[in-house]
């Protein structure tokens, strides 16, 4: 896991890599929802403003038409390379008719199949975030190898207006969403943040939850509410950066510190391995080994920071 994360960090700082973002805020149906959807989309764009080298596109209101969405995706397809990343976020109301999912937009709605066709033409790694009602119904149509799909609902039959989008956007503005503190918010971290906040929202309001988010990144699963090594979901999302919070990787470009970086990476890998063995290790032994590794890691980091 650690090695993969490091790879992701390196990829993120590559001078060649570009982060593409396309946010679509669909029809609200009522002024309150229209305002809410465009507000969330606009908040996300503000959070992405500092993302170096990012290409951020927003379609909302009357501009969020099928033709415009397809045109934007075609334009990205023309530019994006395999090392690049693309995060597509759909905010609004969706529907599912047992065959296909549709996003409610001005004019003709766009279906999951049509989105899939457009996305398949893009070489970049992709995270597709469908925060609408009924979005669970889109997973089957959109799933693909090396594509992360996140839906606000577990199926197409959860039809109530959702709040997941609000918390997905909040993850980009709340530093605590970066739970491993590596200064990179991954799709998995943002998903976990939004999922927890959505659950808290319904718990706090004493309302029955009408949305249950899922993540699918294996290209063949049903989607999982709690992605983990156990169910095989979340690996790709865990190394898919959606926002960089600092300049954590600046040191990596300093050749003199490569040995220390190598040692640091080894220690972090050992820590990850130990964590995976936690259940099979007695607590005192685990604590002793973990503390030893962390202390050594602290010393290495101190040397790197000098």
């Amino acid at each position: 896991m650690r090695k993969l994360l490091l790879l992701a960090a390196v990829a993120a700082i590559s001078a060649q890599a570009t982060s593409f973002y396309l946010t679509v805020a669909g029809l609200g149906g009522e002024p309150e929802y229209d305002q809410r959807f465009t507000g969330w989309a606009s908040d996300l764009n503000k959070a992405l403003a500092g993302e170096a080298g990012a290409k951020v596109e927003l379609l909302s209101g009357k501009d969020a038409t099928k033709a415009n969405i397809q045109a934007k995706l075609s334009a990205i397809a023309a530019q994006a390379k395999a090392d690049d990343t693309l995060m597509v976020l759909f905010i609004g109301h969706g529907s599912y008719d047992d065959i296909d999912y549709k996003l409610n937009i001005p004019g003709q709605d766009i279906s999951a199949s049509e989105l899939n066709d457009a996305l398949n033409k893009i070489a970049a790694r992709q995270t597709v975030v469908l925060t609408t009602s009924g979005s669970g119904g889109a997973i089957k149509k959109l799933q693909k190898d090396k594509r992360v799909i996140i839906s606000a609902t577990k199926s197409g039959s959860e039809r109530n207006a959702t709040v997941f989008a609000r918390f997905w956007v909040e993850a980009f503005r709340d530093g605590s969403a970066d739970t491993d503190k590596n200064q990179t918010l991954t799709a998995l971290e943002a998903y976990k943040y939004a999922k927890l906040k959505t659950k808290d929202y319904f718990d706090t309001q004493k309302r029955l939850a009408t949305e249950h988010p899922l993540l699918e990144d294996t290209g063949k699963g049903e989607g999982e509410a709690d992605p983990s090594a156990g169910n095989g979901q979340g690996l790709l999302a865990g190394r898919f950066p959606v926002l960089h919070l600092g300049s954590a990787s600046a040191i990596a470009s300093t050749p003199a510190k490569q040995a220390l970086l190598k040692r640091k990476d080894d220690l972090e890998t050992s820590i990850d391995e130990l964590k995976y063995r936690k259940a099979a290790t007695d607590q005192p032994t685990y604590n002793k080994q973990m503390q030893g590794l962390l202390l050594e890691l602290a010393k290495v980091q101190a040397s790197l920071d000098q």
């Binding site: 739970t179 491993d180 503190k181 590596n182 954590a248 640091k264 220690l267 972090e268 820590i271 964590k275 604590n287 973990m290 503390q291 962390l294 202390l295 890691l297 602290a298 010393k299 980091q301 101190a302 920071d305």
Partner: peptide
């Protein structure tokens, strides 16, 4: 320690540990 177990590369935590 619990902080760093969750996020080993958390620099302020590493510094505090030392």
């Amino acid at each position: 320690y619990q902080s760093l177990e969750a996020a080993p590369s958390f620099k302020p935590g590493l510094k505090l540990l030392l």
